[in-house]
Simulated assay, not measured.
Amino acid sequence: MSTWEVFIVEDDIRIAEINRKFVEKVEGFSVCGIALNEEEAKEQISILKPDLVILDIYFPDMNGLDLLRWIRSEFRGIEVVMVTAATEVKTLKHALEDGIFDYIVKPVIFQRFKDTLLQFKEHKLLMTQLSADKEINQNMIDSLLKREKVEVEPSFLPKGIDPITLDKILTILMKHKKGFTAEDLGHRTGVSRTTARRYLEYLVSEQKAKADITYGGVGRPERIYKYGL
């Protein structure tokens, strides 16, 4: 069985590692490298020539859309999936025009990520089959072009988990490495301690956060939630 090589371009090493773990949980895929900036990305992509690039948009030294265009001009056989917090319509439009395979908005749900990789595998296998034929018919063309995206609706989340609040809490965790107690995070987001804890425990279950036990001033244990695994 072929193994598809995936290259990750993400300036936050914690998110890059989460993406790596997600890729390696899907059979038939492996991560061949990780780049944190434009120079590393161009150098390693040129050498490794991966099958698929997982690409963010926001970087201190570049815009991911510019790197997407460079990949398209230099390596037309490499597919690109944008995994980003960018939700502007203009950004999505530019990415689509430049030929992305898919566009996934952070925070990433593993099942959504997995679906994209499986669609990529199916697409590549079909391309391989078609390359052996001298001619194609309309049914073959329709199969190749029809890649139905899996839309993650709010109903996909457990009851009591609002996607907007979830995104807000995850964004705060990503920016503060020391982490928060449920009470501290509740104050920051304007929700109760119980509500904050419910969202934090959900993130732990989705492997987007971890909980460490510490002891407060009166010696009672407290859970400190931090972003990442």
Rank of each mutant, 00 (worst) to 15 (best):
K121V: 01
K121Q: 06
E122M: 10
E122Y: 14
H123Y: 15
H123G: 04
H123E: 01
H123F: 10
K124I: 09
K124T: 03
K124G: 05
K124C: 00
L125V: 04
L126G: 00
L126V: 01
M127S: 08
M127T: 04
T128G: 11
Q129L: 12
Q129P: 02
Q129A: 08
Q129T: 06
L130G: 02
L130Q: 03
S131I: 06
S131E: 00
S131W: 04
A132I: 09
D133R: 15
D133L: 15
D133A: 15
D133H: 14
D133E: 15
K134H: 07
K134W: 03
K134P: 05
K134N: 01
E135Y: 08
E135G: 04
E135L: 14
E135M: 11
I136D: 01
I136H: 02
I136G: 01
N137K: 03
N137W: 04
N137Q: 02
N137F: 00
Q138P: 06
Q138K: 04
N139Q: 14
N139E: 15
M140G: 05
M140H: 14
M140R: 14
M140D: 11
M140S: 11
I141N: 00
D142W: 04
D142V: 12
D142E: 14
S143H: 13
S143K: 15
S143L: 11
S143V: 07
S143M: 13
L144G: 04
L144T: 04
L144F: 00
L144I: 05
L144E: 00
L145Q: 07
L145N: 08
K146H: 13
R147C: 01
R147F: 05
R147K: 14
E148T: 12
E148P: 06
E148A: 04
E148I: 13
E148R: 09
K149P: 03
K149H: 07
K149S: 08
K149N: 06
K149C: 05
V150G: 10
V150T: 14
V150L: 10
E151P: 00
E151N: 04
E151W: 06
E151I: 14
V152Y: 13
V152H: 10
P154K: 09
P154C: 13
S155L: 12
S155M: 07
F156L: 10
F156G: 10
F156N: 10
L157Y: 15
L157D: 07
L157K: 10
L157M: 11
P158F: 05
P158N: 02
P158T: 08
P158Q: 09
P158K: 06
